[in-house]
Amino acid sequence: MIITSNEKIWRYVLMIGLSLVLLIPLIVGVWVSLLPNNAILTGHYFTSQFTIDNYIQAITATPILRYLLNSLLVSAIVMVGQVVFSVLAAYAFVFIPFKGKQIIFYAFIGTMMLPFESQLIPNFQTLRWLGILNNYAALAIPFFASAFGTFLLRQTFMQVPLALRESAAIEGVGHFRFLYHAVIPYAKTSLFTLAAYSFLTTWNMYLWPLITSYSDNVRTAQIGLRQLQATEAVNSWGLIMASAILIMVPSLVVLLLSQRAFKSGLLDGAVK
């Protein structure tokens, strides 16, 4: 197709303009995180005295690194849990015939429409009863089973060629061997998508960690930032912004690494 030079011009103008508008919060955030405190307090944002003091301050004087570590561990645990649980369930749904499969599957899928809020209070009570509030376990365990993950992997597993299954059946290959040698290699992209997705969702979780973690050695980065904002914001915006940027880095990295997989894996499964 021919793109006229007129069209090119207005497209570039729009793309540049909209990028600026959309990126303003991020640009401002990075900019402010590099300013000395007195410049921010007096509103003198346009200065050349950039400094990384805010970052040093954030790392040395606040528990931000601990928060990040907490988030990293919790997200990793949930990621592994979700992938393992979903792989197993999806495998059974696709490759093992059993009675009541449909009903159980719909029960799984049905949970996708339930908002987490409708389970919030009893879950809180369950964990209190187990005595594991304010603990990594409390942040991770409720999310091991994932209806979405099971669904996504089921869709992929169903595309495993019939011939593979049949030859495995003839050779008498056991379930775990078949899963490990045939199904998992086949579904790599989806597994990767699910892993990235569950990592990011857990990393970004807000309400649940807010009510279940209340000391610095458990608190996740999101809640840690809230804590810093509440205690420090009034006069150290530079510090807050530096912390925000630090918290954003891991999720941006995961996102960039998984961009391609996301686009194909997640959307195809969801829309079709």
Partner: peptide, 24 residues
């Protein structure tokens, strides 16, 4: 075999989704 594969997800969904929903 099917039970074994589904059990982890089923139990956790039971404890952290269905039970709390009913409780709510």
């Amino acid at each position: 075999a099917a039970m074994g594969f589904i059990a982890p997800s089923a139990i956790f969904l039971g404890v952290f989704v269905f039970y709390p929903l009913v409780k709510t």
